[in-house]
Design a protein around this nucleic acid. Structure first.
Lengths: 187, 187
DNA sequence: AGCTGTCTACCTACTACTTGGTAGATGAAA
DNA sequence: TTTCATCTACCAAGTAGTAGGTAGACAGCT
């Protein structure tokens, strides 16, 4: 694995536990094992590091969403997989979705990063809108309302559920919150 | 207004915009107008300040919840008021609920504060559980599931909706996410 | 083969500034 | 006279970021 990837991996891990303001180049120096200045060589500023981080994260999420689209055809199964992705990322309340933690502390982020964050949310909402539109057709989810509104509500539920799990350092609240969504699955 | 309250007000404003790691005693010095050392006189450590902040916030929320319970008798109207409280606090995506921002960055918080955060969530869940139990009886909300699960899902929805609004600096996502909840109101 | 320039990854050592927090003095009010 | 809120002046540690240098790899050229 090359250095840049290694730095991004470590930074992502730190960011998802401590937030953007909660990790420093000095922290990275410790976990990556090369000097702070060398990390600046790869990512000249913290803003650029954050940008690379969110860009990579968004790309990975997009890939994950199309993987789900390809591997399941019913809306219900896609939704189940979607929720599972977030639950797995949660690590029992230790870590949060990178975009959740960056959204919460977004005042200290640079404009391009804020823009990428919006992009992430828009991607998710578009994909989920498609899912709920399909659900209205294939009837595998109960009481489907207007797809885009369903999508936004679903994303909000998932992000909020992470926060609850984080606050109590346990994945139980996430599970309980999403059970409410899962209960609507018919198939 | 006394100094302590003035400091808490300013700190709360800063914290809800920038997070716990995102404001300093120096920032407070600027907005309160007295020296950093004098603020330390009132709140010796940042941990104690955070504790006072969350304690006051939780108390206010508790008062708000009982105000709602007293002023409305139907579950639907109580829910409407509950959502309105959060929407008002949002200030168009500028600020977040103090406990949302503290939950997201909770790694840097002291144990007592983490405990208070849990208390805040438990309070909300208890109150909402009561609301949904009542809804099952008075039939003013559609498709009510198990009350506690509904409560957790509702809290997650509201907290996540704030995050979405924050990311896009607009209250529209909050409105759209909660419309999904409001659509279930019958009365 | 030997030489030369460029590039990359890394280093030590630093800067300018911010962080939370403290010591000790002053003045006013009780 | 004691208590309190405030001040100035400081501290050690941490912040992002820079300056300038070193060692090795990989050209292209003679």
């Amino acid at each position: 694995m090359d250095r840049k990837t290694e730095i991004l991996d470590s930074a992502e891990k730190l960011a998802r536990r401590h937030g953007y303001d909660g990790f420093s180049y000095a922290d990275l120096e410790r976990v990556v094992g090369i000097r702070k200045a060398s990390i600046h060589h790869h990512f000249p500023s913290k803003a650029e590091l954050a940008e690379a981080l969110v860009r990579r994260y968004t790309d990975r999420m997009r890939a994950e969403l199309s993987r789900i689209s390809v591997s399941h055809s019913s809306a219900a199964r896609r939704l189940r997989d979607y929720l599972a992705v977030y639950q797995k990322a949660l690590k029992g309340g230790e870590a949060l979705c990178l975009c959740v933690v960056f959204s919460a502390g977004s005042q200290s982020l640079s404009d391009p990063v804020v823009e990428l964050l919006k992009q992430y949310h828009d991607d998710s909402i578009d994909w989920l809108s498609g899912l709920f539109a399909q659900a209205a057709a294939d009837q595998t989810i109960a009481n489907v309302g207007e797809p885009k509104r369903e999508a936004i509500a679903c994303l909000a539920l998932v992000e909020g559920a992470q926060l609850l799990s984080r606050a109590s350092r346990s994945e139980i609240p996430f599970e309980e919150a999403t059970q409410q969504m899962m209960a609507r699955i018919i198939d």
